[in-house]
Nucleic acid binder design. Structure first.
Length: 418
RNA sequence: CGGGGUGUGGUGUAACGGCUAACAUUCUCGCUUUGGGAGCGAGCGACUCCGGGUUCGAAUCCCGGCACCCCGACCA
């Protein structure tokens, strides 16, 4: 992408109504735009980053047998009445509206009900199970208070996977696979070291669920990590009984603030029973399908990465999610030879499918280009200037480590082609 | 939903109840400049969130609304 063609631009200052680091940096760098409280638009750089996160998740979901679908945002109220989740007294964050043709609907806050109902069309025999379906979809939650930039919005992207199994034993096998997939996802996202699997309340579903919590001062949750066993639990379930059950001594717990970036639930037959999702076994006997749900918030993850890695100069993206892998900085756009070298490098990157943002802007000072580059946070910067051209090399600098060196074209390509 | 706070050019700030609402930045034009948001000059850009009220006079005081932020509650 030629930076001269990128319609967004950077800002020196963040709007004063943004306090959260993630929103300040993402807005200053032109990744997102605030539309309303808790409602953000994703701009070119932000969308590329979000799509990279989504793609990693997609690959891991596919790897465990997930079938990708998209459910509607508009909901069939009758399904939610069957599970008693339509009444505002029971679930208070619906965005509800009416059809002009008559009747009431709401924007999906999650999708257990419609998907369970949908699966009735395809599940009738034990031969049809297990089945796994997931989607990336915008969820709508009428939160009393949006906060923390893109991390807690009224409209946000969620990956929700639902598993449909014959029995608890079969469910358990998949649950463990999904858990392992999540761990792998956070490792790939660059958050592996600071993300913990945490015991938490099962809410209305079951006694416990497991949350994926990324340690960060920007977090809203408090978790306790047992450094000996690696186990962790949410403050909301911290009792002596639970500690005993998990075999953890209270003294060995370390308290941390953290961001909930994902969770996995055992749903049992909580939804399949009221909605009538059942199958016939080998003996012709009918059973309710055993379900699980597995959520991840790509937009929240993006905010979390901004919080965890962002520094005083701007955003810092891990390689796997960065909007571009390389940021070429042309420091002499009016110099024929420098332009030739920089343009050629960009063309070679295009040719080799190495995603690059090329700062080809004319009349922009070196300092401004460096500052913009730091703010945008692309992992590797390649500077092309009169100095580097004279030496026949390129100056590369890693955003995360700050390490800088002069290397040849060959060395540069070796480094980028793995 | 309880409590607190803030609304002034695109952005960040200033302005005693009193001159044509000021400054920085952004943007436009010209010249200069080109390794860390460079310099000089000239411009564009605001019914001071909306609606009432008090006053000779309101960005400023009062009332209502709306929006946004923070703390708490909530977060399937």
């Amino acid at each position: 992408m030629l930076q001269s063609q990128l319609f967004t631009k950077t800002r020196r200052e963040a709007p004063k109504d943004e306090v959260a680091k993630n929103a300040q940096l993402l807005i200053r760098a032109g990744f997102v735009h605030k539309e309303l409280s808790g409602v953000y638009a994703y701009l070119p750089l932000g969308l590329r980053t979000l799509n990279n996160i989504i793609q990693i998740i997609r690959e891991e979901m596919n790897a465990i047998g997930g079938n990708e679908i998209i459910m509607p945002a508009l909901q069939d109220k009758s399904l939610w009445e069957k599970t008693d989740r339509w009444d505002d007294k029971k679930v208070d964050n619906w965005f509800k509206t009416e059809f002009k043709s008559g009747g009431e609907t709401g924007l999906g806050i999650t999708h257990e009900e419609p998907l369970t109902n949908l699966m009735r069309d395809y599940v009738s025999s034990y031969r049809d199970l297990p089945a796994y379906a997931y989607q990336f979809q915008t969820k709508f939650r009428n939160e009393m208070r949006a906060k923390s930039g893109i991390m807690r919005g009224k409209e946000f992207m969620m990956k929700d996977l639902y598993s449909f199994s014959r029995n608890e034993a079969e469910h358990k096998i998949f649950y463990e696979r999904a858990r392992a997939a999540y761990i792998k996802i956070f490792e790939r996202l660059g958050l592996g070291d600071c993300t913990h699997v945490v015991f938490a309340s099962g809410g209305i579903f079951s006694r416990f669920s497991e949350e994926f919590q990324t340690v960060s001062d920007a977090g809203e949750d408090i978790i306790y990590i047992d450094e000996r066993s690696g186990q962790a639990l949410n403050k909301e379930v911290l009792t002596d009984d639970v500690l005993k059950e998990l075999g953890i001594a209270r003294e060995s717990l370390v308290e941390k603030k953290s961001i909930e970036v994902g969770n996995i639930f055992n749903l049992g037959t909580k939804f399949s029973e009221p909605l009538g999702l059942s199958y016939k076994d080998e003996l012709g006997e009918s059973h309710s399908v055993v379900m699980g749900s597995y959520g991840l918030g790509p937009t929240r993850i993006m905010g979390t990465i901004a919080e965890v890695f962002g520094d005083e100069r701007g955003l810092v993206w891990p390689e796997a999610v960065a909007p571009y892998r390389v940021h070429i900085i042309n420091l002499a756009t009016d110099d024929e030879e420098v332009n030739r070298v920089a343009n050629l490098l960009y063309d070679e990157f295009l040719d080799k499918h190495i995603d690059a943002l090329y700062d080809d802007r004319k009349g922009v000072s070196a300092g401004e280009k460096f500052n913009d580059s730091d703010l945008i946070g692309i992992p590797l910067r390649v500077v092309v200037s009169k100095k580097t051209v004279a030496e026949g090399k390129f100056e590369v600098k890693e955003r995360m480590s700050g390490a800088s060196s002069m290397i040849s074209r060959e060395e540069l390509f070796i480094r980028l082609i793995k």
